[in-house]
Design a protein around this nucleic acid. Sequence first.
DNA 1: TTAGGCTGGTTAAACGTTTTTCTTCCTTTG
DNA 2: CAAAGGAAGAAAAACGTTTAACCAGCCTAA
Lengths: 348, 348
Amino acid sequence: MAITIKDVAKVSGVSIATISNVITRKKHVGPEVTQKVMQAMRKLNYRPNMIARSLKVKKTNNIGILAPDIGNPFFAEIVKGVESVAKKKGCQFFLSNTNGDVEVERSALAAFESQNVDGIINIAPRMEDGELHACAALPHVVVDRPIDTPGLMGCVRSNNLTGCQQLARHFLEVGHTRFACMAGPVETVPNARTRLDGFCGELRRAGVAKRDIVVYVGEFCFEDGYSLMKKMLARKSVPTAVFLCSDIMAWGALECAREKGVCIPQDIAIAGFDNVYFSTLVSPALTTIDAPKFKAGVIAFDMLHDLMSGVKQVERQVVMETRLVVRASTIFLRSPVKRLNEEIRKIG
Amino acid sequence: MAITIKDVAKVSGVSIATISNVITRKKHVGPEVTQKVMQAMRKLNYRPNMIARSLKVKKTNNIGILAPDIGNPFFAEIVKGVESVAKKKGCQFFLSNTNGDVEVERSALAAFESQNVDGIINIAPRMEDGELHACAALPHVVVDRPIDTPGLMGCVRSNNLTGCQQLARHFLEVGHTRFACMAGPVETVPNARTRLDGFCGELRRAGVAKRDIVVYVGEFCFEDGYSLMKKMLARKSVPTAVFLCSDIMAWGALECAREKGVCIPQDIAIAGFDNVYFSTLVSPALTTIDAPKFKAGVIAFDMLHDLMSGVKQVERQVVMETRLVVRASTIFLRSPVKRLNEEIRKIG
DNA sequence: TTAGGCTGGTTAAACGTTTTTCTTCCTTTG
DNA sequence: CAAAGGAAGAAAAACGTTTAACCAGCCTAA
């Protein structure tokens, strides 16, 4: 039988209200009584029952975190950011993986609501805007996806555009002339669209012809990076600079290149998006676009916390910058990168 | 204001007890009343308040998961295993990262207890046995660490020994004669000790001299893999087969080798432990010892669930097998691996 | 001296459920 | 036909807290 406030009351010979007061510090209670109570609590190893407390105060100090896949280090990092500051505020969290399945998202949200969480952090949800907005009765911040913020909604994301533009310029600077972009699910994920548009747009602006940019679409996963790369290598004129719209896709592409005996970056330059920490470990180290992950988590929680505590005038849209991180997969130090270009020009 | 069972009672013109009965199906309630109630619930979009329910029934259907670092795919995979089956049983979970810090473990456990979780899954805890055993009042299964199981404890882990022995034999078979083992924190983590002993023991049994096995100790992290490798390469006689006791350490070692211009596996063969899914992606693909992760999570939850439901005679110790997975980092197809050995013999 | 205000404490109601007990009204049966 | 039993629902108590309302004693000020 778990031990309750009543037991403590009995042992310390004082009313349960007093016990509660020494715990919550809401009313002053005399020093010697405080002592007695403290002692009794320690002796009994009493732990307040949060369930009962929550029921009474209508506040659980729990939040729910929804993420597509915690096995993906990108999301894991965000979650860790959230946790780092949640812990400081005495906040626990429920976690639910959705696999990008809207149905799962729905049921997880319902479950969270039943658990009376005080707020929700929703990472890269697939659910459409309208349905998401309907959840704004509860403080709810969505991360890594643009959305406008009625009710108690918040949004923290990164500017996917600039990083992609930087990458396009980088490719141009090192002399590439034929490009490929392997995008994510552009129909359902706004950021996938943005990355594609940012990259291609900048190229076009620099005068690259439309036919020199080939676009593929897939999911943000290893397999699709692999298979799209394979498809691309089967073309008769192969681009020399390819942007995979997530690191994990880029790993797939690297794997494919290795199998086909294509040298990176000598033959083809490859870049990703996310700057997940594994990206320094693949070979060659991956040029990628860094998006703040841990920090996004931190900011998301802070925002949620403000929303939960009813702070007025909270900044409900935070967008952070992305930036290009150049590594070995796009620069070939020993010789100019144009070799393949020239060969192709000769051949085709 | 959230809507409660009382509102439903009012709308459907029936007592709250009856509402409860239609929800829980504990007592039969007439069909037309059931209809009315259902309708009212739907109309009001009523969701039972789990907090109140939990308080009454002294059961939350929540569990707590403790893991060193969710950013580590090894642990993430276990968590996903747990979640997959927990979800089916209508169980939510709290998650807490400990960073391998005993103090954090303690406070997280206390927090879980206050939340009245029904059980705990404790992955690779650092806390010592005694203290852990003290938590066995609550159903508590520890994963990936051997421990005996008094009270309501359970343990699911993998047999670290056999895999390491297989690896040792594999190294011998391809002709190595000088070995290194870079172990984890052998003092505090039992599995670290087992891996070291399993590997070295098998070598010794095969007649390898003690002086042909060099041992280093570090943490299970990238940095230590890197630095220990560096230290090893500075020796005047360098082993040709090295076992890094976790994949993530092995990645560090690969990185170091790359920097130093050491070819893997031609110059040195490298193997890891865990078979985390990224290990196929590093270059060269890593030979490693596969430990079941997702499945461990599944089994852990099943065991916990039995413990929670008071099932008698639950098997409280499950140990799964590990097995060697040979990949490119230890086999060099085009020529025998002994080259460096011979050079070393010549030089030193 | 006494009304009024602190101080430090107690009592009791409330939070939203479940569950035990109680009430009604039928139906069965000897 | 009366007693027993069963079915369907209602009333009320309980879960472990917090908190509003209350109270006793003491100090101060009028």
